[in-house]
Amino acid sequence: MPVMTAQLTKLAQDQEWTQLIALTAQGDQAALATLYDRTSAQVFGLVVKILTNREAAEEVTLDVYTQVWRQAHTYDRTRGAPGAWLMMLARTRAIDRFRAGAAEHGRMESLDAAHLFASDDETPEQDVEGQERRRYVRQALAKLAEEQRQAIALAYFYGLSQSEIAEKLQLPLGTVKTRIRLGMMKLREALAPYEAGLVP
């Protein structure tokens, strides 16, 4: 896909989603339903990945869109794209649910971060741009050491603090800090051309 076309597609999508969120803030139920139709697969996919439980993921997804209904007025476009806002809500909700379950069932020990970056597309996707983006980010992740990917995934997808990661991996805190810092710096550098729109 040519760079300009991909950027225009993303721009048009952001504009549509922003408009849908604005209409939702005004109490337009149909706008929320349309936003759900456009975004629920991505939200549900993320939540399923984090929770590894479809039933719990359904409840969390429902909570996410109910939260959108209640808090659409708080969305500020200048602070980020609508998709990023939505995924932040989904991730936060999923982490809350995960941590509540982990505290109850002691799941933290058996936590496996490797599956988060595994290539296992469950849904045949029509979104070419989405596939392209995913491929590019995976390539960037492949440049990191496995230990760095693991530490970053535990922090971002499960909300584990550096101390919790150190405890789980039975490593010194300093080692975890270094892995996260160096891994993130490398990832940022690898993704910079994509984020700048230089790569489709």
């Binding site: 929320l32 339903a33 759900y36 139709d37 629920s40 697969a41 991505q42 549900f44 996919g45 993320l46 399923v48 990945k49 993921a57 359904e58 997804t61 429902l62 869109y65 109910t66 980020g80 794209a81 990023a84 995924m87 991730r91 988060l116 970056f117 296992d120 597309d121 469950e122 849904t123 996707e125 979104d127 989405g130 983006r133 995913r134 980010v137 995976r138 960037a140 992740l141 970053i152 971002y156 997808f157 993130m184 990832l187 940022r188 993704l191 994509y194 984020e195």
Partner: peptide
């Protein structure tokens, strides 16, 4: 860095939720 972590969510493949979830919403 926020853009970097934002990109991480795109690694996860989309999964279509059941139709009943939309009705419930």
């Amino acid at each position: 860095y926020h853009a970097t972590t934002g990109a991480l969510t795109s690694v996860v493949a989309p999964v279509t939720p059941p139709v009943t979830l939309r009705e419930r919403l």
